[in-house]
Nucleic acid binder design. Structure first.
Lengths: 203, 203
DNA sequence: ATATATTTTAAATGCTTGTTTAAATTTATC
DNA sequence: GATAAATTTAAACAAGCATTTAAAATATAT
């Protein structure tokens, strides 16, 4: 049933995002997208010229969605333990809200990296956050273990993202139900916070 | 050019593994596999009945390859710091040797978990290793922070696997060449070892 | 050497793919 | 309200898909 208040182009873009996230580029057909948007198949090419171009638009949005909230937190003027905790909490929230997002990004970039990095100004923004300055100052005055942004950031993010990307294999491996997993993930989140802070913050 | 000493069935299986790992199930065609094996297209179905059945055979092998070396290390009678170090080194070695393996497993299971867990006796073996006993004893005598296998194991594995799965995005994000990344990954490996050991081992 | 079974082949099957066409319909402009 | 532009539609396109067929080639057994 069509929502008349919304532009067709946006309807297609949003439908495409849902389908691409779930099935990946190779697993998605133009007809899947048209059906999800409840529109004629020809309209996907009328508005976006090709499946490829539609995908690139969606992918750019998805990649920015992945970085945007983290970027805001990285630039906050808060102490570094709180910052790490907030990044991890945000990651946790994101993985629950959009369980397909990270594995989708990882997989699509892994399969064809060259095609997916056109401008990506968001990358520069991640490189130049306030956290970087905090790390330098902390290392200089001896409160933090000397580490670069590229070393600490993956340590912060990998824990939560890894168990959610591998949710089904972790469930099977450790014989967990969905409820078990939810409780397990909460435990794991606190372990990660403590482990990373213990390692980075001296004393 | 055909290798006459090798059975056709095995040639197809090995070609299929290479292509599936690189392109995923959806991105792989039967013709891709036949071409990689340098054999007639009809032979894939002559020996394996369907692309799906061939994939399931390959996937089972790949999943066992993922767990097998780790399983051996988990059962070694060595102290727990050494054990963690060996698991991480092994992960590192595996990611360099088979860069597509982990993201492939994660992605395929994420997309359709139910179809990929038939018997999986390897999972039980992972659950019942000597490490589990070491964790219980260490927690009992106060040398280790009390943790379950399902909590510590992902912490050990996520660091290395995460940066290699996201190799291309990390290269782009932090403006690294392949050589830069190789050095960076070595650094990161040592950070992970130290961080996990510091957290698990008391004192 | 001949008969049988196995393996390989080229060709064809019917179906799905991304994309395009041209006509029909709706919307905007004067 | 007529005309032009934008949008939507059903239908078709060629190409590629997984799979099957039946004949040819090869290996095996008698």
């Amino acid at each position: 049933m069509k929502c008349v208040t919304e532009k067709s182009e946006d309807r297609i873009r949003e439908a495409a995002k849902r389908v691409f996230l779930k099935k990946g580029f190779d697993g998605t057909t133009s007809r899947d997208i048209a059906k999800e948007a409840d529109m004629n198949i020809a309209l996907t090419n009328y508005y976006f010229r090709s499946k490829e171009k539609l995908f690139l638009e969606v992918f750019k949005d998805v990649l920015e969605e992945y970085f945007q909230n983290m970027l805001t937190i990285l630039n906050k003027d808060i102490d570094i333990k709180t910052k790490i905790s907030e990044i991890i909490d945000n990651d946790f929230y994101m993985m629950k809200k959009e369980p397909d997002l990270v594995i989708f990004i990882m997989n699509e970039i892994h399969k064809s990296p060259q095609r997916l990095f056109p401008d990506m100004s968001i990358f520069r923004q991640v490189r130049e956050t306030y956290l970087k300055k905090q790390l330098e100052e902390g290392a200089a005055n001896g409160t933090l273990r000397p580490m670069q942004l590229e070393n600490i950031l993956p340590l912060i993010k990998c824990g939560v993202e890894f168990i959610f990307m591998g949710k089904e294999i972790h469930k099977e491996l450790f014989m967990m139900t969905d409820d078990d997993f939810a409780k397990y993930a909460e435990e794991q989140k606190e372990h990660i916070k403590a482990m990373v802070c213990n390692y980075l913050v001296i004393g």
